[in-house]
Structures are given as structure tokens and as C-alpha cells.
Design a protein around this nucleic acid. Structure first.
Lengths: 123, 123, 123, 123
DNA sequence: GTGGTCTAGACCACT
DNA sequence: GTGGTCTAGACCACG
């Protein structure tokens, strides 16, 4: 499990953690049932407060990515393929819609946008 | 000139104003030289503090979207076609990059993303 | 707005606060739009940490009871009559069902249970 | 004797065990004198630690539901009809009081509550 | 050892 | 002044 925080990023640390874990669960990199390292460990390795980590874990549990069992640890929650696909595209379509709106507002055509996309994909 | 604020939105009010004005300037909806309504008018109509409006205007001036002429008000700044195009694509590529990153994180291929884009373009 | 915490109660403080606010919103004692006292004030008056209060507020916002506007305060969220009634009965029916299950498990009849209920209502 | 644990449930495992045994004793499903399976058997079948099972048994013994006879195991304790009835109603009135409190907090009348109860009784 | 909760005090962004 | 976030360190319940 890979985690990192960028203190210079203006998005809150707990949000950064949330996004990373959620993405790994949705992509399948973290399989259901996988135990997560203890909060204290994560906290130390990343150099952030335990409470910050817990905040992220809390949100992840609320959103159904994790289950925590007091005294035994946190685990990746089982997630139906359906839910996973839905969540996966949710974020993406939101971003796509915003991009499309911006393109349209500036009079850019779909073909132009697609070519920009393909060009940038390589990076 | 159309402006609106959504107090329930988590993005700061001054930022909402900034984005709206900037977008209208870049899209040409607000032509260079156009006078903006007085701060106190905007403040009243939107039901936000004058200080907040002032903050947005300041930022817009700092970024070259507006110019203030003491005693006569604020006006849309002249902007070179080059700068305008640059800014337009700046925003767009930022969004594109984010979208691409999300797609890659979820194991989605470029062809899939393109087809999603085209499908959503119609809306 | 009335709030109190019982440190002897084993239910977490933030939960106690949550329940009290939620109940007052659902019962109509707190009308939509009503501003809540600042977190720091509540914190001081109840003698609990700011973070604890924020935890409760956070949950209340997530569940749609409050909206918070950074820099200006927290307010009772608008809530549709439908949602309100639904939530109101949700908790109640859960409790009722548990009670009924316990009564049935012990061979108590519905009429007995009703008379117990009425007797205890007076307290 | 039927036992099960739900690790996703937020109530501690030892408590889940306690409740199940206590309920079966009070309802008569487990008659006084009945021997309980060895702790290690229960532990294995439920997939929980022996310490946890032991904790539940201890609590049950403390509360007079079980008796341990060194070398021969645990047995359902004899319980007077009086004690049994008292405990039965204890639990029930606690639930009733909570239900009534919730109803009152939401401005629901006794007659409404009774009709809700009767309606739900049928399930 | 694990997570769950709490405290006291701090800095920043927004209005 | 408001909420948003973070730190460091603590105690308890659970397994």
C-alpha cells in the first residue's frame, strides 16, 4: 500500500489520504479484506498526527471503503463490482463534464478537445 | 453582467466571484473597457459583504482581468489575444490533466476515456 | 437552544450533542436557517473541547441537519417535511421493533405491552 | 445452543455473546443446569479469540446467568422465577422508556405511539 | 497492540 | 470573529 502526503498541497492532508486509499480500493490495488497498517504506524511514517489519519479513515469508513474492528484493525471493505464501477465513473464524469463545459465556453470543438486529450495522455 | 453566489457551495464566495468574472472575460462575454457595477451595488444584490467583493476584485486586478481607475470605478482590462488564448488553454489543460490522472488511476484506457468524452459532449 | 453533556454517560460526548441537535431539528424546536452559537462558545459553556463539538457538528452536517459557512457560522439546514417525518419515525420504529422483539421473546402479549407503555408514559 | 457473531457490528463481540446467552436463559430456551460447550470449542466455531469468549462467560457468571464448576465446565445457573421475571421486565421497560423519550422529543402523542406499536406488532 | 475518544492550544482562510 | 485544519500527548475499551 502506497501513501504519501504533500504538505505544500493546499488540499487538507486527511483528504489527500482519503483520495489515495479510495482510488486504490476502486482500482483493485487494495483487495477487499486486506488489513491496513495500524493508524499509529501510518501516522509515524507519514509524519502526520494520528488524529489526521483517523479523520481520513473515518471518512473512508463512512463512505464504505473500510471497515474498522476495534481492537483488531482496519480492513478494506467488500465492495460490489456494481458499486465500484459506479463510483469509479462518478468522479470521472464530473471532471469530464467540467472540462467539456470549459471547452464549450471557449468555443473549442469536440475534435479539438479529443486531440488535446490524446496529446496530454502520453505525459 | 451576470453574477451569482451559492452560499452552500464549499468554495469560498470570493473565489466564486473570481471564477465567474474571469470566465466571462476570457470567453469574451465581457469586452475590455466594460465598466463593472460599483462594489456596493454588487454587494447588496448578492447579499455578501463588501469586503468579500473587494477581495475578489483585488484578485482579479492582480491577475490582470480588471483595472481600477480611482474615482471612476473598475473596468475590464484590455487583454492580448495571446494572453487570452494562453489562459484559456491553461485552465483546460489543468482540467484535462486531472481527468487523465483519475482515468489512469482507475485503469481506464485512452480510447475508453475518449468515448466517454464524446458521449457526454452531447448533453 | 438547549444543550447539555453527561460525562458519566458512556455514549461519546460528540454523539450526545449530535442526538440533541438532531432531535431539536426534527421536532421543529430549531427552525431551518437558525444560526447556531459559535463552536468556541458551545465548547466553553459545556466544558468540552472545541474539537469534540466540531466532531458533532461535522456529523450533523454530513447527515443534512446543519450547513456551515466558513467565516460566518453554522446554520440549521432546510429540511423537507417529507425527510423530516421519515427520519423522525426511522429512529422510533427501530426502537419499537426492538421492544416488540423482546416482548415476543418473553411471551408477552400485545395488550400487555400496550398497558405497560401507557403506564410508563406518565413518568 | 445457537450463537453467532457479526464482526461488522459495532457492538463488541463479548457483548454480542453476552446478550445472546442472557436472552436464551431468560426466555427459557436454555434451561438451568444445561452444560455449555467448552470455551475453546466456542472460540473455534465462531472464529473469535478464547479471551473474548472467556470475557463474556465471566460477565455472565458475574450476573448470575452461568456457574462454573472447576474441572467440569460451565452450566446455566438456576434462576428463581422472580429474578427471571424481574430481569425480563427490566430490559423491556428500559427499551420502552427510551422509545417513549424519543416519541416525546418528537412531539408524538401516546395514542399515535400505541397505534404504531400495534401496526408493527404484526410483522 | 488495536482503534475510540478526548484535551489544550495553535495557525490559517474566509467574512 | 468565524470555521477548517493540525499537533502532541493522553486514557479507555477491545481482542
Amino acid at each position: 500500500m502506497k501513501l504519501s502526503v504533500n504538505p505544500n498541497d493546499k488540499t487538507p492532508i486527511y483528504r489527500q489520504l482519503y483520495e489515495q486509499i479510495a482510488a486504490q480500493v476502486l482500482s483493485g490495488a487494495l483487495a477487499p479484506g486486506t488489513p491496513l497498517p495500524p493508524i499509529r504506524t501510518v501516522s509515524k511514517e507519514l509524519g502526520v498526527s494520528m488524529i489526521t489519519v483517523r479523520g481520513a479513515w473515518d471518512m473512508l469508513e463512512r463512505d464504505g471503503y473500510l471497515v474498522t474492528r476495534a481492537g483488531s484493525g482496519c480492513f478494506v471493505a467488500p465492495i460490489s463490482a456494481q458499486t465500484r464501477d459506479q463510483r469509479r465513473t462518478e468522479k470521472l464524469t464530473a471532471l469530464l463534464d467540467e472540462t467539456i463545459a470549459a471547452a464549450k465556453a471557449h468555443g473549442i470543438r469536440d475534435t479539438e478537445l479529443v486531440s488535446m486529450l490524446l496529446e496530454r495522455w502520453e505525459n
